[in-house]
């Protein structure tokens, strides 16, 4: 069994206890329990179909859980009314696997769409300024008037990330941020994740199969197996694990 890793002075922003979720007869999550501490980058590993994406979708209330407790900023997600849940959602950024950009809107509209709806007092100029600011932080200021169909995979991920940053979230959930990208672009995205954490003091859960990304971004790693957290620890600890199955992720 691996040594449990805990941040010193840990202050959990997300707490998941005994999370269960089934789809028909397929029980995907069978009692997942873990915390995300403030300022921490937590990487979630696991085989495809092990329920990693489902876990983070449960955190933002996109998928209703069967049982268990999910607490975000000390508020239990399952018991919240939609308006209260939306207040929590504005404090969480979610980067989808395929970026999920609104394909009928330009990059500018993709970013201003969210902002306009959450701060009706902002003028057009102020919105534009915010949009340019976040685009600059992801290094894609020049793509402001492009349509999503004109962007490459890496650019889409960056714009998706910019869209999550527009509301200045305290937590960011990354669903396979480097999947489908070449090695160089993957590294750039991983470095961007670190840069954003440093700049915005965000806490993140990063779901990935990309081990260089996990090594670069993780403070701590948890590995899902058969619907539960099989093991947790730092990259270095898990790389030297006695469990062959765990070590196989790091080869």
């Amino acid at each position: 069994m691996e040594k449990n890793y805990t941040l010193q002075n840990s202050n959990p922003v997300i707490e998941i206890k005994d999370l269960h979720k089934s789809f028909g007869t397929n029980e995907v999550l069978k009692g997942v329990t873990f915390n995300l501490n403030k300022g921490e980058n937590l990487v979630v590993l696991g085989k495809s179909g092990s329920g990693k994406s489902i876990t983070i979708k449960c955190i933002v209330g996109l998928i209703k859980i069967d049982s268990g407790i999910i607490t975000v900023f000390n508020q239990e997600i399952n018991s919240l009314e939609i308006d209260e849940l939306n207040k929590i959602r504005t404090r969480i950024g979610f980067l989808f696997q395929n970026a999920a950009l609104y394909d009928s809107m330009s990059v500018r509209e993709n970013l201003s769409f969210t902002l306009r709806r959450h701060d009706t007092t902002l003028s057009g100029d102020a919105i534009n300024e915010h949009v340019l600011e976040v685009l600059e932080s992801v290094g894609l200021k020049e793509a402001i008037d492009k349509m999503p169909s004109e962007l490459s995979g890496g650019m889409r991920k960056r714009i998706g990330l910019a869209r999550t940053l527009i509301l200045k979230p305290e937590i960011i959930l990354y669903d396979e941020p480097t999947t489908g990208l070449d090695t160089i672009t993957s590294r750039e995205i991983s470095e961007l994740i670190l840069e954003l954490r440093q700049k915005n003091k965000t806490s993140s859960i990063i779901i990935t199969h990309d081990m260089p990304c996990a090594r670069l971004t993780s403070d701590r790693i948890v590995i899902l197996k058969e619907g539960v957290i099989h093991v947790e620890g730092t990259y270095d600890e898990l790389e030297k694990s006695e469990d062959e199955w765990v070590r196989s992720f790091f080869i």
């Binding site: 959602r89 696997q97 395929n98 999920a100 950009l101 609104y102 394909d103 769409f113 969210t114 959450h118």
Partner: peptide, 15 residues
């Protein structure tokens, strides 16, 4: 929009 998670993206943005 549903299959490309754009509807989910709106929902998680509290829209």
């Amino acid at each position: 929009m549903k299959v490309t998670e754009q509807i989910d993206a709106m929902e998680v943005s509290a829209i």
